[in-house]
């Protein structure tokens, strides 16, 4: 768009600018700013209250733990399946690539229901068998990891597939013909060219994983200091009239989300120059 001369600034231009900026200010900017200012309305009091509350500290640790494993699982799975989808041809490939997006269009509440129906300790499809070998999924950290991995599953794949298609196979074939094995080809040729997309996907998955609420609420049982994650603590503290702690925890979660967004925005211009 930078190629064209700037369009003339008319009354319409100003009407649209004011409309858009006003709308976004009232819907997003002002409310988000208020959460920040409410968090700090008594200095660092709210944050130190939150950090001295063992339930909050436990919830933050559990959230980071679950998000870490969900991201590790999704990264390994995502890289593998992206390579398979782009580099190989096999029956059912199109179906698989369509199904991969499914978790994004399922309500978090339905995700929770689905995992309970499959892994619930007593009534779940696999529940009794897993309990038999001593694995508890529902109402335990394992269930939280599964729910989190479910909702953030497509994010890495969505970033990798277009980049893998873009870079083509010539370099990889050259490496193979020079005697490199599959792992060497991946590490020396493929990985360097997808690293930004991979990082982008990982950051998005991490943000999504840290913030999951609905699915985790159903699967975890929401017991303070046992299966309560950070987003669940926000709900509980708000409803218990510990608003300062709720705002402080929200602020931390929002800070991580916005930081992730800024990282992604900085990385993005490497892929598409929109002439801005």
């Amino acid at each position: 768009m930078a190629r064209y001369s700037a369009p003339p600034v008319t009354t319409g231009t100003w009407v649209r600018r004011v409309l858009v900026v006003g709308y976004l200010f009232l819907l997003v900017v002002w409310p988000v700013a208020l959460v920040v200012s409410t968090t700090f309305d008594n200095g660092l009091g709210n944050l130190s209250d939150a950090f001295s509350d063992p339930d909050v500290v436990y919830a933050l640790q559990l959230t980071v733990y679950a998000a870490f494993w969900a991201v590790v699982i999704n990264t390994v799975f995502g890289v593998g399946i992206s390579l398979l989808l782009v580099r190989y041809e096999f029956p059912g490939r199109r179906t698989l690539s369509a199904l991969i997006d499914l978790p994004l269009s399922v309500s978090p509440v339905v995700v929770g229901l689905a995992i309970l129906l499959a892994y619930g300790g007593e009534n779940g499809f696999f529940g009794p068998a897993l309990t038999g070998i001593g694995l508890q999924v529902a109402y335990a950290p394992l269930g939280i990891i599964l729910a989190t991995a479910f909702v953030s599953l497509p994010l890495v794949i969505r970033e990798l597939v277009p980049v893998l298609e873009e870079i083509g196979v010539e370099q990889e074939q050259a490496a193979t013909s020079l005697g490199a094995n599959a792992w060497q080809t991946f590490r020396r040729i493929t990985l360097p060219s997808i690293k930004w997309a991979l990082l982008y996907g990982v950051v998005l998955s991490l943000a999504r994983s840290l913030g999951e609420f609905g699915a985790v609420k159903i699967v975890s049982g929401n017991v303070a200091s046992q299966t309560q994650t950070a987003t669940l603590v926000v709900e509980q503290k708000y409803q218990d009239f510990e608003q300062g702690t709720a705002y402080a925890t929200s602020f931390l979660l929002a800070l991580i989300a916005v930081a992730a967004l800024v990282v992604v925005t900085i990385l993005r211009p490497k892929e598409d120059h929109d002439g801005d």
Partner: peptide, 19 residues
């Protein structure tokens, strides 16, 4: 504004409610 547009995607939903 570009960043502002994406904030609702990035914020955890419970935080969106509080916001």
């Amino acid at each position: 504004l570009e960043v502002v547009i994406d904030i609702p995607f990035a914020l955890p939903t419970i935080v969106a409610g509080l916001v």
